[in-house]
Amino acid sequence: MAHRTELHDTPQGAAEAATAQRQQRFGHLPERIRAEDTVETKPATVPDPARDTYNADEWLIRYCG
């Protein structure tokens, strides 16, 4: 069974001190986290220079020039 503290069992100063300590610890919300800070982006694969040398317009140079 959980321990239950009755307010009338503690001296007035101790109850106020406990209330002030609880307010200091839990009385404010944590800092807001932006959505941009929750996502990490990185490439799925290592860039391959040989793969990126393809020029989609190369056929224009070869056949139309």
Rank of each mutant, 00 (worst) to 15 (best):
H3E: 04
A50V: 13
P11K: 06
E40P: 03
D37R: 12
D37T: 14
V39D: 05
A15I: 02
I33Y: 07
D48Q: 08
Y63E: 06
H8V: 11
A50R: 13
T38V: 10
A17G: 10
G65H: 07
A15S: 08
W59K: 13
A17T: 08
M1A: 06
T38H: 02
T38E: 13
A17W: 06
A56L: 15
L29G: 03
R34D: 15
R4E: 05
C64V: 13
T19H: 02
W59V: 08
P30T: 11
T10C: 04
E31F: 06
H28E: 06
Q12S: 00
E58W: 06
P49L: 11
T10L: 15
T53N: 14
R51F: 05
Q23F: 12
L60E: 06
Q23H: 04
D37C: 07
V46D: 10
T10R: 15
G13R: 14
T5H: 04
D48R: 09
E40N: 10
Q12R: 01
Q21F: 05
E16C: 02
D52S: 15
R25K: 13
A15W: 13
T5C: 09
A56T: 09
P11Y: 03
D9G: 03
P30V: 04
Q24P: 01
Q21I: 11
T10H: 14
E40Y: 08
A35M: 04
A17H: 04
P30M: 07
P30K: 07
A56Q: 14
H8Q: 12
R22K: 08
T45Y: 10
Q24H: 11
A20E: 02
A18S: 12
R25W: 09
K42C: 06
K42M: 00
T45E: 14
D57Q: 11
T10F: 10
T41L: 14
T5M: 12
E31Q: 04
W59L: 02
A2W: 00
C64N: 08
E58H: 05
Q21N: 01
G27F: 01
D9S: 05
Y54N: 09
E58K: 03
